[in-house]
Amino acid sequence: MDKIKSIGWIIIVISAVAILYALIFNPAAWIVYAISLIFIPLFILSLGLISMAQGKKEDDEDKTKEPFIGY
C-alpha cells in the first residue's frame, strides 16, 4: 500500500467517525456545522483517493519525459 492510499484510509476513518459522532450524539449546532463543512468534503476526497487508479511504475519515465514523436 502506498502513501496516497494510506492517507486516504486515515482521512476516511477520521471523517466517518466525525460524521457519525454528529449523527448519533447530536452536539451543539455550531459543532455540527463545523463537522459538516470540514469532513463531508474530506470524506468525498478520501473516497476518491482510495478508489482512484494509479499508473504503473514503469510508465513514470514516459510521463515525466515525453518522448519526441516528431513534428
Binding site: 449523527l23 455540527v32 463531508i40
Partner: peptide, 12 residues
C-alpha cells in the same frame, strides 16, 4: 430531525 442527518440528506 437530527441536524447532521438533515444536512447529509440535503447535500445528497
Amino acid at each position: 430531525m437530527n441536524l447532521m442527518a438533515d444536512i447529509l440528506l440535503n447535500v445528497t
